[in-house]
C-alpha cells in the first residue's frame, strides 16, 4: 500500500516547517489528489506523511491593506461560500463553483489545488488573471521565513512547482481588485461540475466604458501548465470591445496555446474551443 513509516500532525506552522526541514516528508492537506495519486502510483509517498490540517495559521480568508490573503488550507467550499470571493473575485468564485463535487469541495484546499499543479487545475486560471502570489514558508536557516512568488512563476509544469522540499505553501495573497474591475472564468464541460476541464478561459480587466485596461487573459489545459496569454492581452489592451477586436484577440490566443490530444479531446478541438469560448467570454463582457 505505502511505505509510510511515520505520520505526523503538527499544530503550528513553525513545527510543520521544522519537520519539513528534517526532510523526506509528504504534505497532506485535503488529500483529494494525494490519496488517488498515491494509490495509482503517480505519487510516491515519502516516509513521513505530514497532515497540516491542525495548523491554524493556514486557515481563513482575511482582508487587510488592500490585499486579500487566503490561507492555504481554505477549502473550495469555504471560498465558494465567501461573500468577499463571490463579490470581488468573481473568476475565482466561478472556478470554485465548477470545482469537482460538493464532497470534494468540502475537503480539497486551495493550497492543494495549486501544489498539485495540474494543467487543468480549476483555481489556477483565475489566480493567474488575478495576479496572485503564493506565500512559501520554511525554516531553512533555523527561523521561520516566508517568500512570495507570483503564481505564474510558481507553476512549472504538470505536478511541478517552484516549491522547495523544505517549503510549505502557507497562503495566497492578491491585491483586492479596484472598482469597475471585472473577472470571469469559463470552464468547458457538459455538466456543471465533476468534470476535468477540456479547456478553461480566464479574463480580468479594469473596465472603462466599453474599453478594457490592465487586461489579463489565461487559459487552462492547453499547455503543460495554465498559462497567461500576453499576445491576446495586448490585442485587447485599451481597446473598445467590438467584433473586430474580439476576433483579433481570439486569433492571438490561438497562437499562444499548445494543446495536446488525449482521451478527453483532440488538440484541434481544444483550439477551436479556446477560440470560440474566449470569443464568447469577451462577447458576454461586451454585452454586460
Amino acid at each position: 500500500m505505502s511505505g509510510i513509516s511515520n505520520y505526523v500532525a503538527p499544530r503550528s506552522l513553525d513545527e510543520a516547517a521544522e519537520l519539513l526541514r528534517a526532510g523526506n516528508v509528504t504534505l497532506l492537506a485535503g488529500g483529494t489528489d494525494l490519496m488517488p495519486q498515491s494509490r495509482n502510483g503517480r505519487t510516491q509517498l515519502r516516509p513521513t506523511l505530514m497532515s497540516i490540517r491542525r495548523v491554524a495559521e493556514l486557515r481563513g480568508i482575511s482582508e487587510a491593506a488592500g490585499n486579500v490573503r487566503i490561507g492555504a488550507l481554505t477549502t473550495i467550499s469555504e471560498l465558494r461560500d465567501s461573500v468577499l470571493v463571490r463579490e470581488r473575485l468573481q473568476a475565482l468564485w466561478q472556478a470554485c463553483d465548477r470545482f469537482a463535487s460538493d464532497q470534494i469541495r468540502n475537503a480539497a484546499t486551495i493550497g492543494g489545488n495549486i501544489c498539485n499543479a495540474s494543467p487543468a487545475g480549476d483555481t489556477l486560471v483565475p489566480l493567474l488573471v488575478l495576479d496572485a502570489q503564493v506565500e512559501l514558508a520554511s525554516k531553512s536557516n533555523g527561523t521561520l521565513a516566508t517568500r512570495a512568488v507570483p503564481i505564474a512563476d510558481f507553476l512549472l509544469g504538470p505536478g511541478q512547482t517552484a516549491r522547495a522540499a523544505t517549503e510549505i505553501l502557507s497562503g495566497i495573497v492578491l491585491a483586492l481588485p479596484p472598482r469597475h474591475f471585472i473577472s470571469s472564468f469559463f470552464k468547458f464541460g457538459t455538466r456543471p461540475a465533476l468534470d476535468i476541464s477540456l479547456i478553461s478561459v480566464g479574463l480580468a480587466a479594469r473596465r472603462a466604458g466599453n474599453a478594457l485596461h490592465d487586461v489579463r487573459v489565461a487559459f487552462g489545459a492547453v499547455a503543460p501548465r495554465p498559462i497567461r496569454a500576453p499576445a491576446a492581452e495586448a490585442a485587447l489592451e485599451g481597446k473598445a470591445l467590438d467584433d473586430g477586436v474580439i476576433a483579433v484577440a481570439a486569433a492571438a490566443a490561438e497562437a499562444e496555446i499548445h494543446p495536446i490530444s488525449d482521451v478527453r479531446a483532440s488538440d484541434w478541438y481544444r483550439r477551436e474551443m479556446v477560440r470560440n469560448m474566449f470569443t464568447r467570454v469577451l462577447a458576454h463582457v461586451r454585452d454586460r
Binding site: T190, R191, P192, A193, L194, D195, I196, V263, R264
Partner: peptide, 11 residues
C-alpha cells in the same frame, strides 16, 4: 468514472 462519464443529477 473520471473519463467514462455517467449522467449526473444536474444533467
Amino acid at each position: 468514472f473520471r473519463d467514462y462519464k455517467l449522467v449526473t443529477a444536474p444533467e
